[in-house]
């Protein structure tokens, strides 16, 4: 009898908590949110994030390394027909991409000329630090960020451009020793200066914060008399010293133009070249000649 009473007491204790613990936890959450929401860039949570990054970075790198070979398994099961379709699709895409590269090369050269006029020491080439995506922020968090396996050890710091061989991916917002967090350009917080390749007109690209099968971006052109045409290629316009975005990186293609009398500028919808649901190998733009713990892809190496 004694035992049972004790037992039920103990059970009661575990079962019905003094609400105080829950209240304390809720207050702790509120404190965290307040601290982080009002801190902005130098919020007091930032050191904690850094510590968490240092701890989780290597674990995420390891897990991603274990998972990567298995992620390729579904590709083994392709029928001949699928493969043939894929080949023709890729051929069409290849031709299209080649055309894109040719035109963007022209723009890049033109831009380099302007750069040469305005800047005494124009730095046209970029060095790239290659990195793999090791972690992807969940869709439920509504912010689109990924972690890559290169950090301060590889010469990275915040506000560096990240690109893949398809085009612009995003920018580095936070680094630890071995990892860096990248804000994707499709995130709702991301704004990129963009330039229409056909008319050299500039505008701002904002993310919509959703990754469907086709993540889309909105381009607001500065000059409302300019009309963007479907199929126009948009490249980055570049910021001072290349932070956070270097100039001349292809971003995407105009798919449609929205005209509304309410808005002063015309809004073009851009489909990015990069498939954000299947990011793996990316490159981070670092200043030429910077030191890194891994092989850096040097600009102009082929020309030497």
């Amino acid at each position: 009898m004694e035992q049972r009473w004790k037992g039920s007491d103990g059970r009661e204790k575990g079962n019905r908590p003094s609400g105080s613990v829950v209240v304390a936890l809720l207050l702790a959450c509120a404190t965290l949110i307040t601290l982080d929401a009002h801190g902005g860039q130098d919020s007091p949570i930032e050191p904690a994030r850094r510590v968490a990054g240092e701890a989780f970075g290597p674990v995420e790198t390891f897990t991603a390394g274990v998972v990567r070979p298995f992620a390729a398994v579904p590709d083994y099961f392709g029928t001949r027909k699928d493969l043939r379709e894929q080949v023709s699709e890729l051929e069409a895409e290849n031709a299209e991409l080649r055309r894109t590269v040719e035109t963007s090369g022209l723009d890049r050269n033109r831009l380099a000329e302007y750069d040469g006029l305005t800047r005494a020491a124009a730095d046209t080439g970029y060095d790239l630090v290659p990195a793999h995506v090791i972690a992807v922020g969940s869709g439920q968090s509504f912010s689109h960020t990924v972690t890559i396996d290169a950090g301060t050890d590889s010469g990275l710091h915040a506000d560096m451009t990240v690109l893949s061989n398809d085009g612009l991916v995003g920018r580095v917002i936070r680094v630890t020793r071995t990892t860096a967090t990248v804000l994707l350009i499709v995130d709702a917080d991301s704004v990129v200066g963009g330039r229409l390749a056909s008319s050299m007109e500039i505008g701002f690209l904002g993310g919509r914060g959703i990754i469907d099968s086709t993540g889309r971006l909105d381009l607001d052109l500065m000059d409302d008399s300019v009309v963007a045409n479907a199929g126009d290629v948009v490249t980055t316009w570049g910021s001072k010293d290349g932070t956070p975005y270097v100039a001349g990186v292809p971003i995407g293609r105009v798919v449609s133009v929205i005209n509304s009398p309410r808005e002063t500028s015309r809004r073009a919808v851009i489909e990015p070249f990069v498939d954000f649901t299947a990011l793996d190998l990316v490159g981070v733009v670092v200043p030429t000649g910077s030191s890194s713990d891994r092989d850096v892809v040097r600009a102009g190496q082929g020309e030497d």
């Binding site: 982080d36 994030r49 972690a135 936070r174 990892t179």
Partner: peptide, 15 residues
């Protein structure tokens, strides 16, 4: 909230 690549305001998932 803290492990990379999280970038939202910390404490929201905790809450």
């Amino acid at each position: 909230d803290l492990a990379p690549p999280a970038d939202h305001i910390a404490g929201r998932w905790a809450l």
